[in-house]
């Protein structure tokens, strides 16, 4: 390997606390520490995996990075600037470089908009492209994700889950972003479709020099796609290392437990065979 690439995203001591209210007059009676002092850094062009069980805080981290949720404390340094200190207009422009693909492809596409309007929305917001030029760019994006121009004026309900996720990916790459946050992009899909989507993501990463933050609870998927992995448990990172080292020589107890729970994809080891 040549010299390491510079960091694209650095997260330092990020935290998100939710007040817990109850009793008379909704008094605050405590806090839920959804994310509690998380730090990690992602190099340009790499894939960073964030693994954890449900409720461990991985999606909250994604929402904080996108500023859909205001973090309680910490720093998010993206392309050299602290996102939490940027003025609103500057933040809006930076958003073009950081996009997200959501888990549920059935809920993340507006049912009232055509594919052209869904994929074209980031372009309408951030670029002067309109009309025919916009259509042409959307067709280009559709072809990049393995769909064709015949789908331009279709509505989301006419597509399968895998196709919808491709539309979600096309929307995410529309602005040529640097970082894409993949929030469990395959966990709502059939296994065969999962593989297709993972291959597509892999191909797009190489073609567009994308950096991925891949959030998942599926260790097999993480191992396939990520260079580095962080394991998160109850809002804290318990272990972070290169993917192969995590899988071959885990140090934290939690990591070992997770790996032990992984199914072995070999029929000879199946408990259903004698």
């Amino acid at each position: 390997m040549s010299a390491p690439m510079p960091f694209l995203l650095q997260v330092e001591n990020l935290g998100k606390y939710y007040p817990l209210r109850g009793g008379f007059f909704n008094r605050p009676i405590g806090v839920i520490k959804a994310v509690d002092g998380v730090s990690f850094a992602i190099r340009e062009g790499s894939s960073f995996g964030l693994v954890g069980e449900s409720g461990s805080g991985k999606s909250t981290i994604a929402r904080c990075l996108l500023r859909l949720e205001e973090p309680s404390f910490g720093r998010i340094i993206f392309e050299g600037a602290d996102l939490l200190k940027l003025p609103a207009e500057e933040l809006r422009r930076r958003r073009a470089d950081m996009q997200i693909v959501f888990q549920d492809p059935f809920a993340s596409l507006n049912p009232r908009l055509t594919v052209r309007d869904i994929i074209g929305e980031p372009l309408v917001i951030h670029t002067p492209l309109r009309g025919e030029a916009l259509s042409a760019r959307v067709v280009e994006l559709l072809e990049m994700v393995g769909l064709g121009r015949q789908y331009l004026y279709r509505f989301p309900h006419e597509f399968s889950g895998g196709q919808r996720q491709r539309i979600g990916i096309a929307r995410a790459i529309a602005l040529n972003p640097k970082l894409i946050i993949l929030d469990e992009p395959t966990s709502a899909l059939d296994v065969s479709v999962q593989a297709q989507i993972l291959n597509l993501l892999d191909e797009l990463q190489r073609r567009l020099r994308l950096t991925y933050l891949f959030i998942s609870h599926d260790l097999g998927v993480i191992r396939y796609i990520c260079d580095r992995v962080a394991l998160i448990y109850r809002g804290k990172i318990v272990e972070e290392d290169e993917t192969e080292r995590i899988f071959t020589a885990p140090t934290a107890e939690y990591t070992r437990t997770l790996l032990a729970a992984m199914p072995i994809p070999d029929p000879d080891y199946s408990p259903y065979r004698s």
Partner: peptide, 14 residues
């Protein structure tokens, strides 16, 4: 709270 509204917000929609 719908995901497509969140998606629009993430894209920087007004």
């Amino acid at each position: 709270q719908d995901l497509y509204v969140q998606a629009a917000r993430a894209a920087g929609a007004s």
